[in-house]
Design a protein around this nucleic acid. Structure first.
Length: 212
DNA sequence: AAGTTCCACAACCGCCAGACG
DNA sequence: GCGTCTGGCGGTTGTGGAACT
């Protein structure tokens, strides 16, 4: 299989892998687009990057997903939607592509919604911003802050003009509690700048919840 | 044994955002 | 401010092997 501009496509051969590994051993990561010129590989820089990140990188774990990993993915997906890179960041040794594939082939049947493919696609970004949007609205009622800027610790205008009912906000809290296995008499502090740090593994969940 | 279908996963594509000149 | 380059992301497609007929 040949791509335009003379670049090869399809599965990587062992020889190509060795060339790429050797290049990264010598030059380190980055400057992906320069790799074909330096190594003579008939692959575009993007393809080299993907091959390294998803397969050749020694920190990538291969083999079956454990129950713990699956459980983590399911909970994070409930919370974050199709933000595979964020989810993968919380599953050591797994890449976003692995997580995405595993979800699509194994977990979606069991735990995913039953939306049609097209709907799932269109919801990928809307669902992933679900919490941000809702949180932005909640905050907007109080302080005209957006969730994105809370994340960055900055003040900003709330650009969201929509209003959400108390019921919808309550259901968001319930949704988050279920996703993170937080007891129902506790509240998750969606306003905390630590929320995303928690998702990145740098913030204790205990500091994000309070009891009624 | 041969052909077909199904499934898992690797790889590609298009889009976007940030950096830089 | 604008255009280009690069890296990153998420959705989709292609490939190969297993399972089935």
């Amino acid at each position: 299989m040949k791509a335009e501009h003379g670049n090869k496509k399809g599965l990587w051969t062992q020889e190509e892998d060795m060339i790429l590994i050797e290049y990264i051993r010598v030059h380190g990561r980055g400057h992906w687009n320069g790799i074909p010129n330096v190594t003579g590989l008939k692959r575009c820089g993007k393809s080299c990057r993907l091959r390294w990140l998803n397969y050749l990188n020694p920190s990538v774990k291969h083999g079956d997903f454990s129950e713990e990993e699956e459980d983590l993915i399911i909970r994070l997906h409930n919370l974050l939607g199709n933000r595979w890179s964020l989810i993968a960041g919380r599953v050591p040794g797994r890449t976003d592509n692995q997580v995405k594939n595993h979800w699509n082939t194994h977990l979606r049947k069991k735990y995913g919604n039953k939306k049609r493919k097209k709907d799932a696609v269109s919801s990928s970004k809307t669902h992933s911003t679900h919490i941000e949007e809702h949180s932005g609205r909640v905050l907007g009622e109080r302080e005209t802050l957006s969730f994105e800027h809370l994340r960055d610790g900055e003040m900003a205008e709330n650009q969201d003009n929509g209003e959400k009912s108390i019921g919808e906000v309550d259901s968001l809290y319930q949704h988050c509690n279920e996703s993170l296995l937080i007891p129902t008499d506790y509240h998750l502090n969606l306003f905390s700048p630590g929320l995303f740090e928690f998702l990145d593994g740098n913030y204790p969940l205990d500091d994000l919840i309070w009891q009624n």
